[in-house]
């Protein structure tokens, strides 16, 4: 039987108090997924009213019986349309005095009804919480990461002369699926040879030859949470000397971030650890993207490790660390794992 992650509701209620409201309305698909897991299949099927004493849901009628049975702590009402009307009535019935809705993610037609009912606008309250991962979320994301580590091992035996990028991509995705992944969070990048010089290469039909570098940037989705990894391999023979060098640099830049980043540093400061390292090594201008991005229900979410993020990275934020060097038309390398921030610095997931 599915269970709600109580830690998430505790966090929401704390923020309700801080914002001086006693109820908050959400209907954004990812935000409802954050609270209810896989309860709803597609967007726009449910509206949630989170209040200090409980969770009130108005959802498509077909969900009424299964959700009532699966979540005894939830009150649910069925409505195939105009769920906002029932939510407004429920807020009154529950005696909630100050109710707010997510003005950034709620549709205009519904927001209008809420404003008319006297509800307050508070943008993206769940967004503020989603960035801090609960223990359960970290455990789930660790499992996602483990699937990816296994996939890296698994793929080694498929790397043969003549195999195409697309075939390796298929095998990676297929392996992850059999390990419990339900999909890919982004299009898998498999790049051979000079294609590794393009960080956003589209996987194609290039065939593998001896003495070629390989970059694989791929992910999985495990219990709704995304995993993301990048590995480089030199195929056949001895790696080109410059390739070995840039590979060593990106790995060292990556490790420097893991060693030196601390909670309370800004995304910009953490990005600088990797960027400075690569710059000192003489390849600064070839590191053409940010050091990392937040990760959770989405493969890219808040908690950017980038030159433009002046926000602090705090404990239990999850993010990728993925410095890279790209020598156009020649080759490139990127090394990526995902981490959660602890008081002692980043800890690798899985």
């Amino acid at each position: 039987m599915p269970k709600l992650d109580a830690a998430k509701l505790v966090a929401v209620r704390k923020l309700l108090k801080k914002n001086q409201v006693d109820g908050y309305i959400i209907s954004d698909f990812l935000d409802t997924k954050y609270i209810m897991g896989n309860a709803f299949i597609v967007p726009d099927e449910a509206t949630l009213l989170i209040h200090q004493k409980g969770l009130y849901i108005v959802a498509r009628t077909l969900y009424q019986a299964p959700i009532a049975a699966a979540y005894p702590e939830v009150k649910i009402e069925g409505a195939d349309e105009h769920r906002e009307v029932k939510i407004i009535a429920a807020a009154k019935k529950l005696g909630l005095k100050k109710v707010a809705f997510d003005s950034e993610k709620e549709f205009y037609s519904k927001g209008k009804a809420y404003v008319k009912a006297g509800f307050k606008e508070i943008p993206s309250l769940i967004g503020q919480i989603r960035v801090v991962k609960t223990d359960t979320e970290i455990k789930t994301m660790a499992t996602a990461a483990k699937i990816l580590y296994k996939a890296v091992k698994h793929i080694e035996k498929f790397l043969k002369v003549g195999v195409s990028e697309m075939e390796i991509c298929q095998e990676l995705e297929s392996f992850c699926k059999l390990q419990g992944s339900t999909g890919v969070p982004f299009e898998t990048i498999v790049a051979f040879g000079p294609n590794t010089g393009n960080p956003h290469h589209s996987t194609g039909n290039t065939k593998l030859k001896k003495n070629m570098p390989i970059t694989m940037d791929f992910g999985c989705i495990y219990k709704n949470y995304a995993g993301d990894i990048t590995r480089n391999i030199w195929f056949g023979g001895k790696p080109d000397a410059e390739y070995a060098k840039i590979h060593r640099i990106v790995k060292a830049a990556h490790d420097a971030v893991v060693e030196k980043a601390r909670p309370g540093m800004t995304g910009k400061q953490i990005d600088a650890i990797a960027r400075d390292y690569i710059t000192k090594a003489g390849y600064g201008e070839y590191f053409t993207h940010r050091t990392g991005h937040g990760i959770g229900l989405q493969d890219h979410e808040a908690a950017d490790i980038s030159q433009i993020n002046n926000g602090k990275i705090l404990e239990n934020y999850c993010f990728s660390v993925e410095p890279g060097i790209y020598l156009n038309n020649k080759f490139g390398a990127r090394f990526e794992d995902c981490f959660y921030m602890t008081k002692n610095g980043p800890k690798r997931l899985g």
């Binding site: 549709f107 037609s109 519904k110």
Partner: peptide, 13 residues
Amino acid sequence: FFDPTKMDYINGN
């Protein structure tokens, strides 16, 4: 025109 069932509240406003 815009679609109020596809536009968020802030921008719709």
